[in-house]
Computed example of a mutant assay.
Amino acid sequence: MKSYVGLLFADLVGSTRLYEQLGDAQAHKLVSRALSGFCREVERHHGRVVKQLGDGIFGCFSLASDAATASLAMHHWLSQESWGDQRLTLRAGLHAGDVLQNETGDLFGDAVNVTARLCEFAQPGQLLCSEALVLGLKPSNWPLHARPPLQVRGRQQPVLVYELLTTTDDRTLLMPGLTDQPPQPVLELQLADQRKALACGDSFTLGRADNCDWVVHGQRISRHHARIESRLGQFLLVDYSSNGTLIQTDTGTETLLHGASWLMQGQGRLFLGGQKIPDSRSLHFYVRQPHP
Rank of each mutant, 00 (worst) to 15 (best):
256 L>V: 00
44 R>Q: 12
37 G>N: 10
183 P>N: 10
123 Q>G: 07
220 R>M: 09
225 H>V: 01
204 F>I: 01
95 H>L: 05
67 A>P: 10
235 F>V: 04
127 L>K: 07
82 S>F: 15
19 Y>P: 05
229 E>T: 02
99 V>L: 04
57 I>A: 11
221 I>T: 08
192 A>F: 10
285 F>M: 03
143 P>L: 13
101 Q>K: 07
17 R>P: 00
137 L>I: 11
227 R>A: 02
85 D>V: 04
119 C>K: 03
24 D>F: 09
225 H>M: 01
154 G>E: 11
162 Y>G: 09
76 H>L: 12
26 Q>M: 06
222 S>H: 06
42 V>P: 07
222 S>G: 04
277 I>T: 15
291 H>T: 14
215 V>G: 00
82 S>D: 15
245 T>F: 02
201 G>E: 07
18 L>C: 03
175 M>V: 15
166 T>G: 13
6 G>C: 10
108 F>A: 05
188 E>S: 14
71 S>Y: 03
37 G>S: 11
57 I>H: 14
60 C>V: 09
186 V>A: 09
258 H>E: 02
44 R>N: 15
104 T>V: 13
247 I>E: 00
31 V>L: 11
251 T>R: 09
72 L>T: 03
56 G>K: 10
111 A>I: 07
273 G>H: 04
190 Q>D: 05
110 D>Y: 06
126 Q>C: 02
1 M>K: 08
33 R>P: 03
220 R>S: 13
251 T>M: 01
257 L>H: 00
145 H>A: 11
171 R>I: 03
187 L>T: 06
3 S>C: 13
146 A>I: 10
242 S>L: 12
193 D>G: 06
